[in-house]
Design a protein around this nucleic acid. Sequence first.
DNA 1: TCTCTCACTTC
DNA 2: TGAAGTGAGAG
Length: 745
Amino acid sequence: MSLSMRDPVIPGTSMAYHPFLPHRAPDFAMSAVLGHQPPFLPALTLPPNGAAALSLPGALAKPIMDQLVGAAETGIPFSSLGPQAHLRPLKTMEPEEEVEDDPKVHLEAKELWDQFHKRGTEMVITKSGRRMFPPFKVRCSGLDKKAKYILLMDIIAADDCRYKFHNSRWMVAGKADPEMPKRMYIHPDSPATGEQWMSKVVTFHKLKLTNNISDKHGFTLAFPRDHATWQGNYSFGTQTILNSMHKYQPRFHIVRANDILKLPYSTFRTYLFPETEFIAVTAYQNDKITQLKIDNNPFAKGFRDTGNGRREKRKQLTLQSMRVFDDRHRKENGTSDESSSEQAAFNCFAQSSSPAVSTVGTSNLKDLCPSEGESDAEAESKEEPGPEACDAAKISTTTSEEPSRDKGSPAVKAHLFAAEPGGRPRDSGRLGKASPDSRHSPATISSSTRGLGAEERRSPGREGAATAKAEEARALAGKDAFAPLTVQTDAAAAHLGQGPLPGLGFAPGLAGQQFFNGHPLFLHPGQFAMGGAFSSMAAGMGPLLATVSGASTGVSGLDSTAMASAAAAQGLSGASAAALPFHLQQHVLASQGLAMSPFGSLFPYPYTYMAAAAAASSAAASSSVHRHPFLNLNSMRPRLRYSPYSIPMPVPDSSSLLTTALPSMAVAAGPLDGKAAALAASPASVAVDSGSELNSRSSTLSSSSVSLSPKLCPEKEAATSELQSIQRLVSGLEAKPDRSRSASP
DNA sequence: TCTCTCACTTC
DNA sequence: TGAAGTGAGAG
């Protein structure tokens, strides 16, 4: 399906101008960097092709230099990007004929991601930062070989829930904690030509996840509060701050720009890979995930059952102890059916977990221990019937880079308004229930919006809350509501769009986190060339407040209930282009990164929106949240689930940024599915669903890597109980090996 | 739940 | 060789 939308991109240029300031984007962007008001900023000349570097009047050169120096003093490395890179004389640039590009992105190691996703991927976050595993890698195609691109990724909250791992499954444990500062990570090689990007796998393995809110690996840029494009603080860093026990969705962005300075007014093409969704944890909760990590992460080799790592030694010791105990137990109790069953369970555990029993690799172990799969299947079936009990055969542990492409999961490319958030994990999750495999569809969602028409931006609209009929609404809204928008969708993408979309949620604690709410960009230290705009977060926040206020009036009053009802109302008539207020809200949130939900809110606007707009809105929203009614998160639920449709609310022209987001909102609305609606209407239900969803995912699994945990072989309760007893005993033995050997339990 | 240390690994 | 990335496990 394709929605046609007025493309704000100026012909002959590769950048999209901010919808509100179509002809002044360059000026504003630069002014933001410089911290000057547009009116005071000398006009910047932007080459028609948009690929050229910015030309700065001599008068501006020094200020920029000074700022860069200032930034450097803050500890930000500018090794790879010298200020001169942004000060090249315009005359040296020659307009180039822009080649239309059609970026497609394929997730690398998709099969590995699928394995994790089925179990409910967990990513460890530590104070010092941990890398993601599997690593986020993509392969790009369809880029203009000569044009330069900046590739980025960020991680957004997948929903507004906090989770807990209970009874071997992830369950919603309440509302999400205040969202951490959002950041984007710019690939160190950016900017690079399309040819360069396409010639290799783009990996973001250096991005680290942390729960350290005082993370020093990032810095913030402050922009004038009244700046139309960039407002408030926009932080950059190499680590992304996440909340433990919360679900996240990584996003990949392609921006056609040859300079980071142009990000603010360039088009963001965003791609979501539902299989990369994960839950941040400070310690692994799911043994299956742990095992998968151990089996696939080279650095965890020492913990593999096969090998000489301490894990093996420990297990061997444990097994030995267990055997001793078992023998003793038998002697004491004699042989019986019960003991047999216990033995069975024991065997299962022993086989799968102890190399002593089998020295084969994990994959082999799996084969040798069918019970493993069974146990998984059983456990899974208990949790959530549906998915195939064991599809290990289907799952490959390889991290091959090919899969995604070959599997025909073409990245779905959709404009923001496509509402195709279908890519959303949740959506997929729902779909998954109906069709387990659908969830793992290779389809990648990519939304690219080049810009919103001014009309669209301003058009006040209404939003409805997500409703049980969100899907219907979504379909309607996505297709009709934003007709002006152009949606480019691959065949594969179609399903994504239809997938259920979870609503967006606002971070509960936004007010308290203003500083962090700004949509931060993670800039690789080496790449960041922006000037001295870096300032304390506080500095930038002040101004922002004012900006946001204008637009936000309507949001504050929204509550989940209202939204739900509204959504219901609109659900069927979502097509109406009127739905703005809600969108605005989402837009703001999304741009801020506050509660952007990959599914609902994300696509709607942020994906296509101009970076600048996003940044500005995010910054503004974040900073001004507490003050602005629209953004007043305090008054509203921490995270509201957005339904595509919003409550009617007046949108002042002044709130241009906010309005910009509106179009995107439609998209979000469209994707909502029953689940999303349910969420919006009933948080409680959501929690359950979410949990089940995760469970189902994980349950389906039958990875090649066998789970060695005893838990997985629950042949009989008695056996399990026995096993547990043994384990306890063994634990004691392990604690003091020497002693255990000499002393029998 | 989280933090820290440890032994182990890769690069 | 050492920095850095791992999960386990204790606290």
